[in-house]
Design a protein around this nucleic acid. Structure first.
Lengths: 224, 224
DNA sequence: TGACAAGACGACCGGTCGTGCTATTGTGGC
DNA sequence: GCCACAATAGCACGACCGGTCGTCTTGTCA
C-alpha cells in the first residue's frame, strides 16, 4: 500500500466519522482538511470531485458492514443460526461503541431518499442487497425446517429492518436506556413466531437434527 | 389574521415543503425567498434567525401531525379501535399524497440525532409525546379487555414505530411497490398477537361487547 | 547526480450562506 | 389627504463553499 493509498484511506476514514454525524452532504472539504492537518487543496488532490469522495465513503461503509455484519452471519450454519447471527451482527453495528453509535446507512436513507444521484443509487443497491441477504437467510431457515413453511420471506425482512430502525430511533433520538433489551425482546418474539410450529403437543424438548450444509456456488450479490 | 401573519404562514408552508426534501438544515433563505417571489431580506424580516424559522416549521409539522393522525385516533373509542385508528392515521401520514410522501419527523430524526440544539430538543419532545400516546392507547386497550393483560406497552410502542419506519424505508428508499400492503399485513399480525387470547377453543366468532367510553379530564400532553 | 512523479502547499476563483442596516413602498385609520 | 407603521427591497458584510491554479518539497530509481 503506497503512501498515497494510506493517505486516501485516512481521508476516507475521517470523512466517514464526520459523515456519521453530519451526513454525507454535511462533509466539507475545509473542515476535513483541518482535521487531517492538511490543506484543502492537498486533500482534494486525492479525489476528482466531492461526489467521488462521498462514493468512496459509502463504499468503505459497505465494506465494513460486510465485514462486521454479513460475514459473521455467513460463518454460521444456514438456517436459524445464520438469521440470529445476522441480527446480532446488525445489533452490534447499530449499538456501536461509545460515540460511534448508530447505523451509517440509516442516516443516509433519510438524507438521500429524495436526492437523486450516484450516491443514492449506490445506497439503494446496497440496501437491496441487504434485504436480499435477509430474505435468503430466512428462506434457508425455512428449507432447513427451522422456520414455518408458510413464512412470508419479504415480510420477514421487512419486520427485521423495522426492528433495527426502531432500535436506532429509541437509542439515538429518544434516548431510551432499555432500547437494546427491548430490541432483543422484540427479535426473540419475531423469531419464535417464525419457527415451525411444534407438532407433538408436549414432549421432552430435544434439538432437531440439522441437515448438513452442502457446498453451493457463490452468489454474485455483494452483501450476503 | 393580519397580512403579516398570512405571509409568515406562507413562508412556513413553503419552508416545510422544502424541508421535507432537503431537511431542516437544507433550507436556504435564498431559494426560499425565490420560491415566494420575495427578497431574501424581506423574507428574513419575519424571523429573527434561521433557527426560529426552523422551529416554526417544526411546530407547524407537529400541529399537522396532531390534526391528521392523533385527533382522528382520539375520535375513536378507547381500546383497540383507537390503536387501529392511530396506526391508520400514521400510515396515511407516511404514504402521503403524490410527491409529498414520507414522514417529516423521520427525516428530522436522522438529521438531528447527533446535532444538539433547540430544534433537536423540540423534536425529541414531540417524539416522546408520540410514543407516550401510543403506550397510553395500548394500555387502554389492555384495560378495555381488548389486548392481553401481560402486554408490554413500551415494547408495543417500540414495534409500532418500527413498522412505520420500515414502511417509509421500503417506500422511499428501496421503492418496494408492495410496501403499503406489507405494512398492513405486519400491523394486522402485531394486532392479532396483542389481543387477549380467545379462551373458548373454537366457537362461532362473535364481537365482544365493548365498554362505554367514560369522560376523562384532558391530559397535558401535546400529542395524544 | 539528474529526471521524474507524487504529494502538499497557499492563493485565489465565482458563488452562496446567514445576517445586519437603511431606504422605499404599501396600507389602514383619522 | 395625510400620517404612522408594517411590509418589503436594496445593499453590503464576513464567512465559508467546492474547486483550480502554479509552485515547491520530497522521495525514488537509473
Amino acid at each position: 500500500m503506497s503512501k498515497g493509498d494510506i493517505r486516501r484511506q485516512q481521508i476516507v476514514d475521517t470523512a466517514m466519522r464526520e459523515a456519521s454525524n453530519l451526513g454525507l452532504e454535511g462533509i466539507t472539504l475545509g473542515v476535513l482538511a483541518d482535521k487531517l492537518r492538511l490543506s484543502k487543496s492537498g486533500l482534494f488532490a486525492h479525489f476528482e470531485s466531492k461526489e467521488q469522495l462521498q462514493l468512496a465513503v459509502l463504499e468503505e461503509a459497505i465494506q465494513r458492514f460486510i465485514a462486521q455484519v454479513v460475514q459473521p452471519g455467513l460463518a454460521e450454519p444456514r438456517g436459524e443460526p445464520r438469521v440470529v447471527a445476522l441480527w446480532e451482527g446488525w445489533q452490534r453495528w447499530i449499538l456501536g461503541q461509545g460515540t460511534e453509535r448508530g447505523c451509517f446507512f440509516m442516516s443516509l436513507t433519510a438524507e438521500y431518499d429524495d436526492r437523486p444521484g450516484a450516491v443514492r443509487e449506490g445506497l439503494v443497491r446496497s440496501q437491496k442487497d441487504w434485504l436480499g441477504a435477509l430474505e435468503r437467510a430466512a428462506g434457508q431457515a425455512v428449507s432447513e425446517g427451522h422456520f414455518r413453511p408458510d413464512l412470508d420471506l419479504k415480510l420477514f425482512a421487512y419486520e427485521f429492518t423495522g426492528l433495527g430502525m426502531a432500535l436506532q430511533y429509541a437509542l439515538k433520538l429518544v434516548g431510551d436506556p432499555k432500547a437494546a433489551s427491548r430490541a432483543r425482546q422484540a427479535f426473540a418474539a419475531m423469531l419464535a413466531r417464525s419457527r415451525r410450529v411444534e407438532r407433538p403437543a408436549r414432549r421432552a424438548a430435544s434439538a432437531r437434527p440439522r441437515r448438513a450444509n452442502p457446498a453451493r456456488p457463490p452468489r454474485p450479490n455483494r452483501i450476503g
